[in-house]
Nucleic acid binder design. Sequence first.
DNA 1: ACCTTATCTGTAATGATTACAATGTAGTAT
DNA 2: ATACTACATTGTAATCATTACAGATAAGGT
Lengths: 139, 139
Amino acid sequence: MDTEKYTGILRENGIKVTPQRLEVLRFLDKNRIHPTADDIYRALKKDNPSLSKTTVYNVLDILSKYGLVEVLTISGTESRYDYKSTRHQHFLCTSCGRIVDIHIKGLCMDCMPEKGHKVEEVHGYFKGTCRDCLKGVGG
Amino acid sequence: MDTEKYTGILRENGIKVTPQRLEVLRFLDKNRIHPTADDIYRALKKDNPSLSKTTVYNVLDILSKYGLVEVLTISGTESRYDYKSTRHQHFLCTSCGRIVDIHIKGLCMDCMPEKGHKVEEVHGYFKGTCRDCLKGVGG
DNA sequence: ACCTTATCTGTAATGATTACAATGTAGTAT
DNA sequence: ATACTACATTGTAATCATTACAGATAAGGT
Ligand SMILES: [Mn+2]
Ligand SMILES: [Mn+2]
Ligand SMILES: [Zn+2]
Ligand SMILES: [Zn+2]
């Protein structure tokens, strides 16, 4: 199921294809909820009981190194991971812990006024209380 | 030296004044280099050998809770602290580890298009290689 | 099948942060 | 001034995400 898609992505980037890499990449593509490494580990361990958490970290490292996955440091206590797609920003609800996508303009690689630095990543992080939590509905 | 300034700031915010709180606040005001908790601890311990690292964390907690200090999670591995002044963004050099201030427009509390969320913090994080490191001068 | 090399796994170590209990301090009431 | 109270500070132990490491495994080329 969908294996060709992720196999192709890895091959195009010169990353050796392994079942673990396929699974992590697929999981992030199908679950755009900015999971932690442990979330990914626990989810994938169901179908692959021999999976090691170290492998999850190793896979996330290589995927982010090749730009296929984005690492979010918004929470400060743990990294959250995002399938790299179109550029967007993030809002962390400090009440329920969810991270939601935000689309704003004017925040990009080229918008940095200070000259001479080589910019490789741009993150817009918003924090506060999400709509659901304000209504008392949130998790 | 300058004690009145920081005493006043703490009092205005209803924060009880203690020598440790004054020292941390003063250090952050005088050292706009986005230090870690450990940086602050080691610097202040010189003049106050009985200082505890737990106290540094406690002080930073309360100062950030009252909005006098900003917590930066840009590095992902450790928090960096910034005396809260005028709004600005940050650039982390992944080579030398320094964080430099960046001033861009169009990133503010009210620029978030999604409605209904209560925004309390906005961070613009850039990452890359700083000018000095590109020149081979960086630390 | 064999060899080489990279990956995966499990466990131990690291390091920043937090929890906790004992001690110290400042202000207030007696 | 002394006793009381509440809070701050300190030192140590615990936590938790992440990394280091060494042995087992698997893939690709001969
Ligand atoms: Mn996202
Ligand atoms: Mn700054
Ligand atoms: Zn929420
Ligand atoms: Zn640099």
